[in-house]
Simulated scan of single mutants.
Amino acid sequence: MVAVVVAYNRRDLLAQTLDGLAAQSRACDAVVVVDNASTDGSGAAARAHALGPDVVTLPRNTGGAGGFAAGIAHALQSHRADLVWIMDDDTVPTPAALEALLAARAAYPGEPAVLASRVVWHDGRDHPMNTPRERPLVSGDLALKARAVGAVQIRSASFVSLLLDARAVRAHGLPVAAYFLWNDDFEYTARLLRRRVGLYVTGSVVRHLTKTFGSTDADPGERFRFEVRNKLWLFARSRALDPVGAVLYGGSSVLRWARTIARSRQRRVVLRAGWRGLREGLGSRPASTTAELAGLGPVSAEVAEVERGAGRG
């Protein structure tokens, strides 16, 4: 089991993440830190940490999507991981977080592709940014199987503490690096879970130390471009959703966009960014992850190998 942490310019928070990984009741077999071209010494701080992580330094910032794609590929290719536990550098796992995920996986009468932790904020409240989407219309049998191991069946989840089965990754490929930020986790987990089992394990708890308590639609400013573009790519270009799911989630997204615009204190900025995202989402398609992460050194070859094996390279 290999943990992968994507880091960018949050050296002090990264130290807390590594402290949390070092304190796990079930130790990780290895820890990979992807230094996404940080300028604050995050990579050096990770190398100096007593946990002794394997630090992969990227020459340019590839965003969360690219960082996780590179880190997962490195865990699979260099560490031969059977399971990959991914998180951001502002995520601090409680001591039993990994043990609870592995216990639920072992007890479940099947092979979950994804297991997600319960994510709380500084004060212990469930973080609205990281609430998994429950699988709709799940059968009573599947619901009971999940409940028996202290879990809920899910359709997608965030990248904040996610345990991935390497077999599912090799079958379906890596996160789409072109998303850079926003909806990369939605697209990826929905792709993995289209026909596979995902579990939300409430007994596995991590703290997400964001500056503010809220969801991603809280006055996003220029970043609204990526919310719109990436959602359109997801609905039109991805294999994550079937046609019915694309229509349902698409309708939900349009309503969410309307609420975001209505609540914004910089409405012109949000509208301009949304219009740009709309044009890009309808007029282009994301580059392959292999192409997007080319020129990064040895990790680029690892990415290409995983994507090629999944038929996405």
Results as ranks from 00 to 15, higher is better:
M1F: 03
L13W: 03
L13Q: 10
L14Q: 00
L18M: 05
L21M: 06
A22H: 05
R26D: 08
C28T: 05
V33H: 01
V34T: 00
N36T: 04
A37V: 11
D40S: 01
A48W: 05
A48P: 07
A50Y: 00
G52A: 03
V56Q: 08
T57S: 14
T57N: 00
G64W: 12
G66Q: 11
F68C: 01
F68M: 06
A70Y: 12
G71Q: 04
G71I: 05
I72F: 04
H74T: 13
A75C: 08
A75Y: 03
A75M: 04
R80Y: 10
R80F: 10
D82I: 05
V84I: 10
V84Y: 01
M87D: 05
D89P: 07
T94S: 13
A100K: 13
A100T: 10
L102P: 09
A104Y: 07
A104E: 07
A104M: 02
R105D: 03
A107Q: 01
P109W: 00
E111N: 12
V114M: 04
S117Q: 04
R118H: 12
W121A: 11
W121E: 12
H122G: 02
G124V: 10
T131S: 02
R133W: 06
P136D: 10
S139Q: 00
S139H: 02
G140Q: 04
G140F: 03
L142C: 03
L142P: 02
A143N: 07
K145D: 13
K145R: 15
R147Q: 13
A148L: 14
G150S: 03
A151W: 09
V152A: 08
V152H: 10
V152C: 05
I154A: 03
R155M: 09
S156G: 11
S156C: 11
S158Y: 01
L163N: 00
L163M: 01
L164E: 07
L164S: 06
D165N: 09
H172I: 02
A178N: 12
Y179K: 07
L181G: 12
N183T: 14
D184E: 15
D184N: 15
D185S: 04
F186L: 15
F186S: 08
E187G: 06
Y188K: 01
R194L: 11
G198K: 08
G198H: 06
S204P: 06
V205I: 14
V205P: 05
K211P: 07
T212H: 14
F213G: 09
F213W: 11
G214R: 12
S215M: 10
S215V: 11
T216P: 02
D219W: 10
E222P: 03
R223D: 12
E227P: 01
R229N: 02
R229H: 04
N230M: 10
K231T: 14
W233N: 06
L234Y: 07
L234D: 04
F235Y: 15
A236G: 09
A240F: 08
L241E: 05
G245A: 08
Y249R: 13
G251D: 08
S252P: 00
S252M: 13
S253C: 14
L255M: 08
R263M: 09
S264D: 14
Q266G: 12
V269D: 12
G277K: 12
R279H: 10
G281V: 13
S284Y: 00
T290E: 14
T290F: 09
A291D: 15
A291F: 14
L293P: 12
G295Q: 07
P298G: 08
P298H: 07
P298N: 08
S300I: 05
V303C: 08
A304Y: 05
E305G: 06
E305T: 15
G309S: 05
A310L: 07
